[in-house]
Design a protein around this nucleic acid. Structure first.
Length: 623
RNA sequence: GUGCCCGUAGCUCAACUGGAUAGAGCGUUGGCCUCCGAAGCCAAAGGUUGUGGGUUCGACUCCCGCCGGGCACGCCA
């Protein structure tokens, strides 16, 4: 047989073939020198042509000044594939020099057998990295909305993928819990509770959300309006009204600023209010994270307040080292190639968003030890991060003990659009609360579950509905390319047909059902460790799909693209469905085939669940 | 004004980082349940990848110019 070579080394056929072809190319063209050679192995798009192909001959032909078909011929003569591929026939070399390859069933079987291990073929990294993922982005006194949905679940999926690849991942929820806007709410809450209009003990996030907006409004002075009234002489009444408004706003702003000072000075009563706001906000927001099965908890939170005392010394340091300079009264960092300077201190001495982000980078690289920091934040902040990253680098905050620099990456995501193609809002034009979004999806899913399966108890229906509703939202979001805007549609994502979260859960449920039935009929013994036979076309398709898994996770981690794992899960589920239709498992023609297929089903179930769990979608037993 | 992102089947989206005849799902049309969950499977129809150039053996992918849509651009976060 000669499959010994497949017992060790890489498991992904692309990697195995790459090794073989690299060796062959070196042997066929010894004078290539030390320059890197790309064996260019890819899965074939068209099954008619083969399972995999080698595209190296074209590039090599050019590099060597030779006819690429002759190059392909030379490669084929040197490559050792007898244990792996069907013999290369006369038609193996096609077109300009493609080499088409078809895996042998016993090779597939060997690779699958090795994949059938706890790690499912995903290799441990040579050197695990410490990666910080900045995700979620909760703001005090504000409800989470659709924007947070993406920041939370994409960030969590990226974190899970990197964890799955064996890295140490530290999640950081950069909570907006500091600064003037927060002081405005604290002051507003002080006034409202003082007047007996709010009961601090029964405070909810909805209350705070309302106070936040009221405080914003109270402090917004329309000085320009007043100037207009004066200029166009619109009469004493309009003038008096506006003057009063401006005076009241100025007054509210002054009180808020005083509160900010009190907060920064650790005034006990002010801090108590702030703590109350923090507790209420975090409790409700972290509950939403939990409902979304996003792995974000209190210990991942690193609020802006935690950097407060670092900012002044940090800015002094930047100024004294000449990294930052004064411009129009403010302090800025200028970076080559970026026209807009990064403001790090306002002319009134206050600090900004970018200041805190610089402190965060310094802590993440130097204290937490990150070699990679990933920001799952809205694409609209691209310029901000470009500026902050460049400034952090210039300031030396990305320097690691080993002399390298930490990589800073903005994993930008697009906007959630409604079915009208415009940003997703309620009918009245407000942001959609994340909590109500989850509620509605679960409600709809629960109703559908009841229609589809009347046998379920009310309790089962609730738990299944919750799982399906959340899977629908998450899969709809995560299966799209991160940077693009995408259209949110309950109807589409909860459709139980086609490329949806529910479909994938259904595939899991059917697989589980096979094993329940096997047990019932006394057929569930003897398949563990049984030889895997790849015979039928549907079995081969399933095998090829399974073997792609390690490469998919790796690629998703490199590109920070969870949708690759989603697309894979869908393709695996589809391959399984076809197999399920074409190849009887429990009613297989003989014992050996049944055992082989049971083992294949078991592997499929584990890989499918692993893929879904890797993007943060929990699976269920039945539905 | 400057810069960034996006234009792929009627609709919603992929395309493994430059590979062969651009793939799925929904919808449309036609098949498949006395058989492991039909929430499924099989098949058909549907395309000048916004547009015009360029780079090369080869372009949805890279470069340049237009058209159309979105976003961001010093004292908010």
């Amino acid at each position: 047989m000669g499959n010994d070579a497949l017992q060790t080394g890489p498991l992904d056929p692309v990697d195995v073939l790459a090794e073989r072809f690299l060796r062959a190319i070196r042997a066929a063209f010894p004078d290539l020198g030390p320059d890197p050679v790309d064996p260019a192995i890819t899965p074939s798009k068209q099954p008619k042509l083969g399972d995999f192909q080698c595209n190296a001959a074209m590039a090599l032909g050019k590099r060597l000044g030779k006819n690429p078909r002759e190059v392909a011929q030379a490669i084929v003569q040197h490559v050792e594939l007898s244990d792996l591929c069907e013999p290369l026939g006369a038609d193996a070399i096609a077109g300009p020099g493609f080499i088409n390859l078809r895996l042998r069933p016993d090779a597939l079987s060997s690779l699958l057998t090795r994949m059938d291990a706890p790690g499912l073929g995903v290799p441990a990294p040579a050197s695990p990295e410490t990666v910080v993922v900045d995700l979620c982005g909760i703001n005090l006194a504000k409800q989470m909305h659709v924007g947070h949905l993406r920041a939370t679940i994409i960030g969590d999926a990226i974190a899970r993928i990197l964890e799955r690849l064996g890295n140490r991942v530290v999640r950081q929820n950069h909570v907006g819990d500091w600064g003037l806007p927060i002081a405005m709410v604290v002051q507003k809450l002080r006034e409202e509770s003082g007047a007996g209009r709010i009961d601090l003990d029964r405070l909810t996030l909805d209350d705070l959300d309302r106070l936040y907006r009221e405080a914003q409004r109270d402090c917004a002075a329309d000085a320009r309006g007043l100037a207009c009234v004066t200029r166009f002489d619109l009469g004493p009444k309009a003038r008096a009204e506006l003057e009063e408004q401006v005076a009241s706003a100025n007054d509210a702003m002054a009180r808020a600023k005083a509160t900010l000072v009190a907060l920064q000075a650790h005034d006990a009563q002010t801090v108590a209010l702030w703590t109350r706001i923090t507790d209420v906000t975090m409790r409700e927001c972290l509950l939403s994270c939990e409902r979304l099965h996003a792995n974000v908890s209190a210990r991942d939170s690193a609020g802006e307040s935690s950097y407060a005392t670092e900012l002044a010394p940090l800015i002094e340091d930047l100024a004294s080292r000449g990294i930052a300079e004064v411009s129009e009264g403010a302090l800025v960092v200028r970076n080559e190639g970026i026209a807009e300077p990064t403001l790090v201190r306002k002319s009134d001495g206050g600090f900004l968003y970018a200041t805190t982000d610089l402190a965060a980078i310094r802590r993440r690289v130097q204290k937490i030890g990150a070699s990679r920091v990933i920001y799952t934040v809205d694409a609209r902040q691209a310029l901000h991060f470009k500026q902050v990253f460049a400034s952090a680098h210039k300031a030396g905050f990305t320097a690691r003990p080993d002399g390298t620099n930490a990589r800073l990456e903005h994993a930008a995501f697009g906007t959630v659009l409604g079915e009208d193609g415009r940003p997703f809002k309620t009918r009245s034009g407000e942001n959609v609360k994340l909590a109500s979004l989850i509620d509605e999806s679960i409600e709809r899913a629960t109703a559908r579950i009841g229609e589809k399966n009347a046998d379920l108890s009310p309790e089962e229906r609730r738990t299944i509905g919750a799982a399906v509703g959340v899977a629908a939202i998450k899969y709809a979001d995560l299966s799209n390319d991160r940077v693009r805007d995408y259209q949110f549609s309950f109807d589409r994502m909860l459709e139980f047909e086609g490329n949806t979260g529910p479909y994938l859960l259904y595939a899991v449920v059917r697989l589980r059902s096979i094993f329940r039935n096997a047990k019932q009929r006394g057929l569930d013994a003897g398949w563990q460790g049984a030889p895997i036979a790849i015979d039928q076309p549907a079995e081969k398709n399933l095998a090829l799909a399974l073997l792609r898994y390690p490469g998919v996770v790796r690629g998703a981690g490199d590109a920070l693209e969870p949708h690759r794992v989603c697309v894979f899960a869908f393709e695996l589920a589809t391959a399984f469905s076809s197999f399920f239709d074409a190849c009887p498992v429990l009613a297989a023609p003989d014992d050996a085939t049944r055992r082989s297929r049971l083992r294949l089903c078991d592997l499929t179930l584990r890989v499918l669940e692993d893929a879904l769990h890797t993007v943060g979608i929990p699976t269920i037993e039945r539905m």
